[in-house]
Structures are given as C-alpha cells and as structure tokens.
Amino acid sequence: MLTFERYEIILQLLEEKKVAKLAALVEATGASESTIRRDLTILENEQKLKRIHGGASLKKRKVEEPSMTEKVQYFAEEKREIGKKAANFIKSGDSIYIDAGTSTQAILPYIETKEIVIVTNGFNIIEEAIKRNFKTYVIGGYVKSGTHAFVGKGAVETIQQFRFDKAFIGTNGIDLDFGYSTPDPEEAQIKQLAIEQSNEAFVLADPSKFGEVSFAKFARLEQASIITSAITSADENAEYLERLAKETTVEVVNNDLHRND
C-alpha cells in the first residue's frame, strides 16, 4: 500500500470514529505499528490529526463537543482508573459536587462510604447515584441533549445556594496558558462556580485532553488538582505532564507526578 493511501485510510477512519486506537489503524492499513506511528507524526505535523495515548484523534473545533454516546466509547479503561483515584479523596461526611460527564461518572462505583451528600448537574450522575443509594441533590436549569448536563439561569441560581468540601469536574481541554476549558460557555459557568464554592477542586482528564483548548475557559490550572491515568505517563503525553508539574503549581495525581513546591 502506498503512503498516501495509508493517510487516506487513517483520516477516513478518524472522520468516522473521531478517535482511533493504534491497533485499529494497523488492522485497517495492514502496516506495522512503527509505520503507523511515523504516519501519525507526519499527519500531526500537517495539522490533520492529534496524536493521543495509543492512537490518534481528529482535531477538534473550539466549539465542537462530543455527545454522551461518543464519550462513553473513549478511554474506558483510563476513566475507570481515574474514577478510582478520585474516589480515594472522598471521606465520610463530605458534601461533594460531581460534574456531568463520563470521567466523573466513573467515580461513583468506587466510593466506599454512603455518608456523603452529592450535588450534580449531570443526568447520568443522577441515575448512577440513585442506583447506589447516595443522598443526591440536582441543580435546576434545562438539560442539554448532547452532554446531558443541566445548565442555564436555573442551574446558576441553584448551585449558588451550595458550598462543597470537594468538587470533581470534567474538562475538554487542559492548556498551560489557557487553563481548563470546555466548548459551551454555559457549562463553563457551572464548572467555574462549582470550583469557586469548593474547599478542594479536582479536574478529571483522560489523555486526549492535554494540550487542548476549547472555546470557553472555566478555571486557571492552579485552581484545581488534575487526576489522570497512570497509563498516560508511559506515552507521548508524559512530557506534557512533566511540563505541568515543573512549570505550574498544579498537583497532578497519576501515581508518578506531584505538586511542584
């Protein structure tokens, strides 16, 4: 197969799936892993894709947002690990805010105590929390069809009535200069309020979020700790995590990197 034919197959697969693992690209092209890795580097340099842990993703527009159905399919193993780590920070008696999203949903199966209060703007979080018999409050507003998040004036007014011991927030982008960001300004406002009204805040991020910038900023990096997957430290994103640890005061929780004092 000619080089340009591999490129076409890689880009076509990404158009269909948005994210493709290395194994899937190898199978689709019949090329070796080393060849595909070189192809991905070239295509990334040409601004046609973004390399991520174990594969590649289509470059995202600033206001583009994956649906809940799409999010569930991406980085399932990493999200389970992130959820387990996040749950370790939750103690009996805590009042916690859990943001809408699939990374944040992954926390719930690993929470060991039932003596907590959960506040959320996520339809998926509500269902999971009720199933597990957690005391749960829901902020108002309207529900977005894509992310199943409650946003708008009602959500803002309701969340302002609460204060939290800890907040667990999802993100679409983490950038050294721009901070944490998400495509929708209305969701960004809810995330910002949750962080400001918490004693501690944690942003949960799978490997695809590093180096990304979305449309609406919701916090500076130092306003929250980052919980990510230890798997990330073994791939191309390790260098980015090292920069986060060295160039900022943010704490990165992935078993290897710690706060830069």
Rank of each mutant, 00 (worst) to 15 (best):
E115V: 01
I118H: 06
K85A: 12
L108S: 10
K114F: 06
I90F: 07
T69P: 00
K135S: 12
Y137Q: 12
A86P: 15
K131E: 09
A129R: 05
G83M: 08
I116V: 14
T104W: 07
F75M: 09
A106E: 11
I126W: 10
F134A: 03
R132I: 02
N133V: 00
S95K: 08
E81P: 02
K131A: 06
T69W: 00
V119P: 00
E128R: 06
N121K: 05
E115N: 15
G83V: 10
A86W: 13
D94T: 04
L108K: 12
I125T: 13
R80G: 03
I90M: 10
S103C: 06
I130K: 09
K114Y: 05
G93W: 03
A129V: 02
T102P: 01
R80A: 14
K79M: 08
D94N: 15
T136I: 11
K131G: 01
K84Q: 15
I90R: 04
D99G: 01
Y97R: 01
E78D: 15
E128P: 00
V138N: 08
Q105N: 14
N121S: 10
E127L: 04
I116A: 10
Y74T: 09
I82V: 14
I90S: 11
V117Q: 14
Y110I: 07
Q73W: 00
V72T: 09
T69G: 02
D99T: 04
E77D: 13
K84P: 04
N121Q: 04
I96H: 00
A100V: 08
I116T: 11
E112P: 04
I107S: 07
D99K: 08
Q73V: 07
K85V: 06
K85N: 12
F123L: 14
E112N: 14
I126R: 11
E78V: 03
K79Q: 09
E78K: 05
Y137A: 12
K91D: 14
G83I: 11
N88M: 14
I130M: 09
T120R: 09
A129T: 02
V72N: 01
V138P: 02
V138Y: 13
K131N: 08
Y97A: 00
V72S: 07
E81F: 11
I90Q: 05
K114G: 08
I126Y: 14
I118A: 02
K79T: 07
K131T: 04
F75C: 07
K135E: 11
I98V: 14
D94R: 01
E81W: 07
P109G: 10
G122S: 06
I82Y: 14
T113P: 07
G93I: 06
N88Q: 15
P109H: 12
T104Y: 06
E70L: 05
A106V: 02
I96A: 00
N88K: 15
D99W: 03
I96K: 00
F123V: 13
K71R: 15
P109R: 11
D99H: 06
V138L: 15
F123T: 13
E77R: 11
I118G: 04
T136W: 10
